[in-house]
Write a protein that binds this DNA or RNA. Structure first.
Lengths: 362, 362
DNA sequence: TTGAAAGCGCTAACAC
DNA sequence: GTGTTAGCGCTTTCAA
């Protein structure tokens, strides 16, 4: 509970000036090294990071501003980012926006001067707060989402279009013709891209996107639950449904169970984002998977690279590949569809995730 | 990209001294308020948090040091803690130890002077790093785990003994007599307490704990998987198994499926910690649940209370209740056991989590 | 090789 | 009510 010793204390004890101690700390060769080291050890001296920051103008801290830390995707991304940060002696300050633009903008306002850079998933594409940060010289890297306008920021996305196309084509290949989608908040990048790509893929296959049913969700479990209920209350409910993210998928499955709709016999489901346990559900879920920890790590690397400031590179936009993990929540539609051989052609099969499933009735 | 204006810039523009500006910022009444406010707005002045910290000695940052951010329990705890912190204008710095004592101690060393307080789940009970932080005047609150010795730190635990007893008694009530446990790393608080309580509960019910089979795990999925494989390779494998945490439960279920062991017909399983999707697996998992977000929030409240420094209260030790969520992964053992009515008596049933489950074969 | 001094941006005595 | 001054702990000129 005592006062931390300062560099002046060390200098006094070693019989030198504080500049000499500072030089020693900076790795310069110094005559009185031994005495200084003795004093440092005896006093337990540690330089004050705050004072160092005030001098250097650098905080060695990166902020990560994300919509929902309890979403496993963001949890993994944070883990990946933190691991990289630590290897470079940076700390990670975490902020949760709860998908709220208001909260996000309040957080961002407070970030000036506290952090050297920001990794964020903007809650809406119309967001202008990142631009203000940028104007103040704070580099920003987008993860998973971006904002409208010219590409000014380093960005790490996944191939939302490709992933969605994989999912939709998989359903079409199985023979489904009445498709549905549970969207996310379409003001956000991934929700918009996944929705657009859903429609584009249908059109590319000669189907009328207008006939597909779609419901709004909010990227949360409850939203997925409600959306699925609405989807099934239609006169002609879809036989194949694409759900735009992991949390909503959980809610959608819950709705199916409550209504007693058999999956995949009556309804096939493909989700975006893998859950650890998607493989363990019965039926195990067919999902579009992506490297989430890697996504966070790459964002952090981009940001630290920019902070190292060697070059004024143009903004980089990195798009990571997805892969379709075909499990048991998809099959041909009730009326019959394409044969399985055709259906599964072209889809990526991930054997590790498709562990044999005990179908015996408990 | 321009230089941030300082308080001196504002003072100059408003035609006053910087102390007057400072007073205004601190909420004092000031004659030249209008001119100052104009200058602040025109220049976009924001006080430097670093400089404020250097003066005040406070960083308005709390560190949270946890073993695994991608574990949903810790994810929720972080979410709860961050929410409380933000209401008080504190930031949360997150550090992931990956269950490694070495990494943890390196992180803690770097924390001096960077944060006002620390919330942590020590990786081992013999950990002495928290004591060093404490000596340097940094308040520490333990979450979920604690260290050996006198209670010097505020601590927020769950009722590991009570929760384990609920689980074990549930299995015994169902008629199981050959029980098994998959332990966590017993150098950590929850792993030790859950293991001890497992044995104590057996003894209290007149059974010999020595006859129960136990396997070491590491609180990770892979450890649970391996432990379950070993457990089942015994001559007389248990009919009821208690798994000490959520990640290991996922691994254990995977092992059961690979081996084609039917759950719960051949083997009943109870896990500690709920997963969002535990309810969606088939069979849905019976688990010991606890309020994880709340646990993080309480830890943060305790810490901020201590920082407000009004009183030198003794350390507080808060133990949160668990509740047993009975789902479908437990039933009487193959040879037959107590009738279900008796078996389920005394267990806490959580209706929301026990949604009806589609048992039809897909 | 080293010390003295200035200054990073802010706040709090202390005077007036 | 306001300006002057000192100082939080550090690093880096500038001289010696």
């Amino acid at each position: 509970m005592e006062q931390q010793p300062t560099i002046a204390d060390v200098a006094r004890r070693a019989g030198v000036s504080s500049s000499t101690v500072s030089r020693h700390m900076m790795g310069q060769a110094v005559k009185s090294r031994e005495a200084i080291e003795e004093a440092i050890a005896a006093l337990g001296y540690r330089p004050s990071p705050i004072a160092q920051s005030l001098r250097s103008g650098r905080t060695l801290t990166i902020a990560m501003v994300i919509p929902d830390i309890s979403n496993p995707f963001f949890g993994s991304a944070v883990k990946g980012a933190e691991a990289i940060a630590r290897t470079r002696d940076y700390s990670l300050a975490l902020y949760n926006t709860d998908e709220s633009e208001a909260i996000e903008s309040r957080i961002l306002e407070r970030l000036h001067g506290r952090v050297d850079g920001v990794i964020m998933a903007p809650s809406v594409e119309s967001d202008s707060a990142p631009l203000r940060l940028r104007e103040h010289g704070v580099p920003v890297v987008f993860i998973d989402r971006e904002i409208a306008g010219p590409t000014l920021f380093d960005t790490v996305l996944v191939d939302n279009q490709g992933g969605t196309a994989q999912a939709v084509n998989h359903l079409l290949d199985l023979g489904h013709r009445r498709l549905g989608i549970i969207r996310g908040p379409v003001a956000s990048t991934p929700a918009r891209l996944r929705y657009e790509s859903f429609r584009d893929t249908l059109a590319a296959r000669g189907l009328d996107p207008g006939e597909a049913t779609s419901e709004d969700g909010d990227f949360r479990e409850e939203g997925g639950y409600q959306a699925m209920l609405r989807l099934l209350s239609r006169g002609q409910p879809p036989t194949g449904v694409f759900v735009s993210n992991n949390e909503m998928t959980v809610g959608a499955v819950r709705a199916l169970r409550e209504l007693g709709v058999s999956m995949p016999r009556e309804l096939s489901l493909v989700g975006f984002d893998d859950h650890v346990v998607a493989a363990l559900m019965t039926p195990a879920l067919t999902v579009v998977n992506r490297p989430s920890e890697e996504q966070g790590a790459i964002a952090m690397r981009l940001l630290l690279h920019r902070l190292s400031g060697t070059a004024e590179d143009p903004a980089r936009r990195i798009v990571l590949d997805t892969n379709l993990v075909v499990r048991a929540s998809t099959c041909p539609p009730p009326g019959g569809g394409a044969p399985p051989e055709v259906a599964r052609a072209g889809s990526t099969h991930h054997p590790l995730n498709a562990a044999p499933i005990d179908r015996r009735d408990p």
